[in-house]
Amino acid sequence: MIALLRPFAFALSCVALAALAAPAQAQDFPSRPITIIVGYPPGGGPDIGARMLGEKLAARLHQPVIVENRAGVSGMIGAGAVARAPADGYTLLFAPNTFLIAPHVLPKGTNINLDVLHDFAPVIAPSKGAMIMVAHPSLGVHNAKELVALLKKQPGLAYATPGSGSPMHIAGELFKKSADVNMLHVPYKGVAPALADVVGGHVKITYAAIGVVAPHIAAGRLVALGAAEKERSPLMPELPTLAEQGFPNTATGAWYGVFAPKGTPAAVVDKLNKEFNAALQMPDTVAKLKNQWEVPLGGSPEDLARMAKAEYEDYGKIIKAFNISAD
């Protein structure tokens, strides 16, 4: 009888040790450098945001935070590297919410086998920007209503995007449906060439992150027509949303998320979340984010999980309805 009970007692002791190990692991964490992987090239928005917050996190945790760029396949190369990393909190993903769009639009032959909702442990949504619709001044419109009036007379005006399947492409298709207008989608290979052609007047309309077009708006090279957001951005509060102008169901949103590999101990995730939240409340962090045309978000891992699930499902429906795919 005693011999039979020994395996059961051993199993119970293992469970007890595991329960004690989690808080101890969080207490000792981190004991070595943390790596934040960005799935985009150096110098872009994700890279700048990751480096700024990585610097704050390093100061708070007293350990180096290294930002590593692994660009390719709409950010999925970097995401895959994090998903395969040990689930110990020492490898994190810093990604824009396009991370949730890519699986829906990538060609079926793409060798990226990721489940973005289940292969990662959400940590925090650090900040958000805004997506806005802009036009070249020569078009002679000053808001979305005036653009729609023009499109009724001149259907087929072109709008530029960084590529098929991009958030800007999705925003354009949503606007076309809501406003019942016809616009021609012209995909480019990246934000820079698309924006250059709109600033040059070769294509008259585009969607872009607020930080990308704000200098051109201030200089009079572009006209802001409306925000493709659920609410006005505090970064440009005078600009009404497209919905406010009578075109509902046109919001896309632009925000960043930090994720750890699936299975990362909850205590470690909570500690990272706590330190990120503290860094986001620092006045100089808020100021730096504002300079990058971002506003702090923060919140719990559960908040990010809810945001990610809702957007993944919403984008999936939109992309299927409009038959959108990447280049």
Results as ranks from 00 to 15, higher is better:
N249S: 06
P137D: 03
N97L: 10
L92D: 07
G316D: 12
L289C: 05
L222I: 13
K108L: 14
D88K: 04
P7M: 13
P107E: 01
Q27M: 07
A208F: 03
A50M: 05
E302R: 11
L157M: 11
Q25C: 07
P7V: 06
M307F: 10
Q154L: 15
V295A: 06
A21S: 13
P283H: 00
P7Q: 07
P215A: 14
H216N: 08
E294P: 00
H118Q: 15
P33F: 01
P46E: 04
L92T: 12
D88C: 01
G190Q: 05
P187D: 08
R32D: 00
A287C: 05
A192D: 14
K153V: 04
V212T: 12
A192T: 13
F247H: 01
G226Q: 02
Y312Q: 06
P96E: 03
G316T: 11
S300I: 00
A266W: 03
I48M: 08
A219N: 12
K317F: 05
A58F: 02
G43L: 14
G49N: 05
V148P: 10
A21C: 09
G201P: 14
A85P: 15
A85H: 13
A24T: 07
I101K: 00
L222R: 05
A71F: 02
E275S: 13
A254Y: 03
K320P: 00
L184T: 13
A310K: 13
G49K: 00
F29N: 12
G263S: 12
F322M: 03
A135C: 12
H104G: 07
V286S: 00
T35W: 01
A228L: 02
G253D: 02
Q292L: 03
L93E: 08
F29E: 07
V213C: 03
L195H: 01
L100E: 10
A160C: 08
G246A: 06
W293E: 07
W255K: 04
I318E: 00
E238L: 08
Y90M: 01
V212H: 00
I2D: 05
V213M: 09
R51E: 12
A18N: 12
V258L: 14
A87T: 05
I66N: 09
L4F: 12
A287Y: 00
P33K: 13
L106D: 03
V65N: 14
K108Q: 08
P167A: 07
A227C: 09
G78A: 06
L4P: 09
K288Q: 11
L195T: 04
A144I: 06
M1W: 02
L61G: 15
L184F: 13
E173N: 12
W255Q: 04
D119K: 09
M133C: 14
A149L: 12
E313V: 14
P248L: 07
I210R: 02
I324F: 05
